[in-house]
Design a protein around this nucleic acid. Structure first.
Lengths: 199, 199
DNA sequence: ACCTGAACACCGTTCAAGT
DNA sequence: ACCTGAACACCGTTCAAGT
């Protein structure tokens, strides 16, 4: 339901309620129970559509590594486009439903690069879990802006982490390199996991 | 507040409410507002204590890789000990507050292994985000058991993923190796990220 | 047969009233 | 000065009553 997604994106998933959706659609709040058994079922449908994103457009070039990068970058962008909804992906089992297209594509590329099944499974799950962790952490701060100021609140550049130097000398050394999120840092992590992809 | 943690662990974070806590403690639900400004502040305090876990016990042996593994395995176990609370870690910025001890320890080990600051920051964040993604996905299914059957509901061995073979041939090849979670698979992912740690 | 909306059993939080 | 608990403005969901 596109209307539900609009309500979530403008007011935040926290402010989404059957009554709010009813108000937005000028109908009784209980009318939605004819299409979805429960509020959770409705949210699950929204989450599925976000995970699916544009998965149909996934490329198959002659560079498996580039194709895998495109897959996970697309998932990341789709999640960040709905930051307040993103954390709800954790309610669905990874590798099921909306994940199938993506995981099939990624595993196919790993296989094509010459990986055996056990390694491919391990690398695929590492990539997925890394992507979820990284993206949800970044989504959290976008979500705060949305829930505070309404939709369209793009914060400035992501703030660097600032640990107290006297307590954590080692951390302070790397602090300038720590950011809560940005695509370059995300892709660097992907490359780290994919570092010795055969060929 | 230990009582709040007990309510969360026995009935699930979803069933936690000021009224439920008041009932558990035989006091008025509004009495908690004297100690915590809001329900969210109370939950944040619980989450902080879970992230901290036993971080004071982190080892410093002569094997940096083993120390880092111990750090993230401890974080994982602490989160899995409170599966319904675990997803709430995403509301706090990673690398802040309760993360400091852990991130300082991990970065120190990476530094000790000869990594320069930029690489150490990248590897540390990759490890953290991977751990969060992996652990929260696993926590989700433990949480479902708790919320359905009450505390102490340890499900059997984790079910393997079963994609429809005809639609996703590549995925089916690796399906026997895909599991939603278990410590061996988790550690394999850590090792993948740490593969070429110097020395 | 279908749909509406009143009603039930909750919720977080406030604040006037009591001590 | 402190604390209690009634009350406010919500919530998801059900189901009797209307058409």
């Amino acid at each position: 339901m596109a209307a539900a997604m609009e309500v979530v994106d403008t007011n935040g998933a926290g402010a989404f309620s059957m009554r709010a959706l009813g108000g937005f659609l000028d109908c009784d709040p209980t009318a939605m129970y004819r299409h979805f058994a429960t509020k959770n079922a409705l949210l699950d449908a929204l989450v599925d559509s976000v995970i699916r994103g544009g998965a149909a457009d996934l490329p198959e070039t002659d560079d498996p590594r580039a194709d895998i990068r495109a897959n996970f970058r697309q998932l990341r962008r789709s999640l960040l486009a709905h930051p307040t909804l993103a954390p709800l992906v954790l309610r669905r089992p990874p590798g099921m439903g909306a994940y199938w297209e993506r995981s099939d594509h990624a595993v196919a590329q790993l296989h094509r690069a010459g990986m055996d099944p056990a390694d491919a499974a391990n690398v695929y799950q590492t990539l997925l879990f890394y992507t979820l962790g990284h993206t949800l952490s970044e989504a959290r701060q976008l979500a705060r802006a949305v829930e505070k100021e309404g939709a369209g609140a793009r914060g400035g550049p992501v703030a660097a982490v600032r640990p107290p130097a006297e307590l954590h000398p080692d951390l302070s050394d790397v602090a300038p390199h720590l950011r809560e999120g940005n695509e370059t840092q995300f892709l660097a992590g992907l490359d780290l996991i994919l570092r010795d992809l055969p060929r």
